[in-house]
Amino acid sequence: MSLDTVVEDIREEAHARAEEIRAEGESRADEIESAAEEDAEATLEEAEREVDREIDQLREQRLSSAKLEAKQKRLEARRDVLGEVREQVEEELASLDGNTREELTRALLEAAGTEFDAGDDVSVYGREDDRELIESILEDDAFDGYEYAGERDCLGGVVVESDQSRVRVNNTFDSVLEDVWEDNLQAISNRLFEQ
Rank of each mutant, 00 (worst) to 15 (best):
R53D: 09
E54W: 07
I55R: 11
D56L: 11
D56E: 14
E60C: 05
L63R: 13
S64W: 03
S64H: 09
K67T: 05
L68Q: 10
L68H: 08
L68T: 10
L68D: 12
E69W: 01
E69L: 07
Q72V: 12
K73A: 15
K73N: 11
R74K: 11
R74T: 14
R74N: 12
L75N: 13
A77N: 10
R78Y: 07
R79Y: 10
V81Y: 12
V81D: 09
E84H: 08
E84K: 12
E87Q: 13
Q88H: 12
Q88C: 08
Q88V: 11
Q88G: 10
V89I: 13
E90W: 12
E92D: 11
L93Q: 04
L96P: 00
L96S: 00
G98P: 00
G98F: 03
T100M: 08
E102I: 08
E102T: 11
E102F: 06
T105K: 02
R106Q: 04
A107D: 10
L108A: 04
L108D: 02
L108K: 04
L109D: 00
L109S: 01
E110M: 07
E110H: 03
A111H: 07
G113F: 00
T114N: 13
E115A: 15
G119V: 03
V122N: 00
V122L: 02
S123C: 10
V124N: 00
Y125L: 09
R127P: 05
E128W: 05
D129E: 10
D130T: 04
D130F: 01
R131A: 08
E132M: 07
E135N: 06
S136Y: 06
L138H: 06
L138I: 07
E139L: 15
E139K: 15
D140T: 08
D140K: 12
D141L: 09
D141Q: 09
F143G: 04
D144G: 15
D144F: 14
D144I: 13
Y146C: 05
E147Q: 14
A149P: 02
G150R: 07
E151K: 09
R152K: 15
R152G: 08
D153M: 05
C154V: 13
